[in-house]
């Protein structure tokens, strides 16, 4: 926040509560350990040594939805899986965010058929869509950084202070 210079050695930091809350929320975001299909393999790739998602503080996956803030829907959601995904989302504590990773989660992808939910936004609200089939690990990391950006611009009531412009 660049406050160290302003505060000097007084041991006092001044910031708005909103800024502090958003700073902590965006820097300690725990994704749900949750993979569905091909995209989950690329998500694992993003967490492995070459792409090292922990640079952004995102490596601690929680297996329990109760401990997670972020659901990365990585892969196609079938009609049979849809109620499970919704239930997991409902079990997550507020505030929570969703990234639709890959074309299937975003819009059904190549599977325009009876079996696949045509976009996970039919069942859960989505904050960031990541395109690709599957997206490269860099694309997922980019999506996560955009989400962090979004969280930093939120009001305490959860609404957005200003629209997020993609650079």
């Amino acid at each position: 926040m660049g406050i160290e210079q302003k505060a000097g050695d007084m041991g006092i930091v001044t910031a708005s509560l909103e800024q502090v809350v958003n700073w902590s929320r965006s820097n300690a975001m725990w994704p749900l350990l949750f993979g569905l299909a091909c995209c989950a393999i690329e998500m694992m790739g993003a967490q492995s040594a070459n792409y090292d998602l922990s640079r952004f503080g995102m490596e601690i996956n929680r297996a329990s939805p109760r401990q997670a803030d972020l659901m990365i829907v990585a892969g196609r959601v079938s009609r049979k899986m849809a109620p499970v995904v919704r239930r997991l989302y409902d079990q997550m504590a507020d505030p929570k965010w969703v990234i639709a990773m890959g074309d299937c989660a975003a819009c059904g992808g190549v599977f325009n058929n009876y079996a696949i939910v045509q976009g996970v936004d039919e069942i859960v609200p989505v904050d960031v869509y990541v395109a690709g089939c599957p997206p490269r690990p860099e694309a997922l990391i980019d999506g996560i950084i955009h989400l962090h950006e979004k969280v930093r611009r939120m009001r305490l009531d959860g609404t957005l202070r200003e629209p997020v412009h993609l650079s």
């Binding site: 079938s78 049979k80 899986m81 190549v110 325009n112 058929n113 009876y114 079996a115 696949i116």
Partner: peptide, 28 residues
């Protein structure tokens, strides 16, 4: 069945060249 994607059925509506794309996504 939690990941049933209807790949075999969808292939019936694709030409032989286009169906190759769907085979990628069975055993990913």
């Amino acid at each position: 069945g939690y990941l049933h994607t209807g790949i075999e059925k969808t292939m019936e509506s694709k030409t032989y060249q286009k169906a190759v794309v769907l085979t990628d996504r069975t055993d990913y």
